[in-house]
């Protein structure tokens, strides 16, 4: 095949892939807003995805907060930035780092899990069996995972924000000799409710994107264990890129609002 042929082939596959994701997104969105919802399955997924990700989110945010405080204090010491550690840590975490890092880490963990699970079900004909039994796989399999992500990721972001601010507190008090009261007063000084909402708002979009990419890759997996492995890797890469790209556009959007 010529280089143009290969380019055409690659482009066409990408377009089909994006089209497939968009169609799945529309179909899943319709099922998210119309009953019935499987409450028991949503809670099970929320436990599997959300509760079991709390340690991961907390550790990452805690150390990010600590590093932010250290970097701010030492790198910008010449500008007297030590006094502004609270503002830098608070704003950075709540507006940006909390939602993005949580989405990247949890997206990788949860997204790959969704793809592996749905992919295994697809290649072992369980998804077809569900259809043949008159059940809707999008409603039974995708919607509960998506709803769990939509509820779980914003909560994890709040949790990560708290852990990150606590990390900043540890460095501020132990390393830099600031008092907790001084640190918290500066964290809250510039912070507005809109900042908090913008971080949570981002996490909702991230959750939908993670669920959609993971579900699409799982449901379109082919070729046995090898195919499931490939789909899972694709999900981790696609989730990371999508979260970062989406973050840019969402930041522009929320700043404009």
């Amino acid at each position: 095949m010529s280089i143009f042929g290969r380019l055409y082939d690659l482009t066409w596959r990408r377009v089909r892939h994006l089209g497939g994701v968009a169609l799945l997104g529309r179909a899943v969105a319709a099922r998210l807003v119309t009953p019935p919802w499987d409450g028991r399955e949503i809670i099970r997924q929320l436990e599997a995805m959300g509760v079991r990700s709390t340690n991961l989110a907390a550790v990452i945010a805690l150390f990010t907060g600590m590093v932010l405080a250290l970097q701010t204090a030492y790198t910008l010491a010449a500008f007297g930035a030590k006094l502004y550690i609270g503002e830098v840590v608070g704003l950075s975490l709540i507006r940006e780092l909390g939602p993005v890092l949580t989405a990247l880490m949890v997206g990788g963990r949860v997204g790959s899990g969704i793809t592996a699970e749905l992919g295994s079900m697809t290649v072992s004909e369980q998804v077809e069996a569900m259809r043949s039994l008159g059940a809707d796989p999008l409603r039974k399999l995708v919607a509960p995972r998506m709803l769990a992500l939509l509820m779980g990721l914003p909560l994890l972001v709040v949790f990560a924000d708290i852990a990150g601010i606590f990390g900043g507190l540890l460095i501020s008090t132990w390393e830099l000799g600031l008092t907790p009261g001084f640190y918290f007063s500066h964290v809250l000084r510039l912070l507005q409710f809109g900042d908090f909402l913008s971080g949570i708002g981002k996490s909702v979009f991230f959750a939908f994107a993670i669920g959609l990419i993971a579900s699409y890759n799982g449901l379109s997996a082919t070729g046995g264990a090898d195919g499931v492995g490939k789909a899972t890797t694709d999900t981790v890469v696609a989730v990371a890129i999508t979260v970062l790209v989406l973050d840019f556009f969402l930041t522009k959007l929320f700043l404009a609002l």
Binding site: S120, M121, S124, E125, Q126, E128, A129, M130, R131, S132, L133, G134
Partner: peptide
């Protein structure tokens, strides 16, 4: 229709 037509899969396709 699928309530009236059963399909027994080659790999059984039991839900794990």
């Amino acid at each position: 229709l699928r309530r009236r037509v059963s399909y027994i899969f080659q790999q059984c396709a039991l839900f794990d």
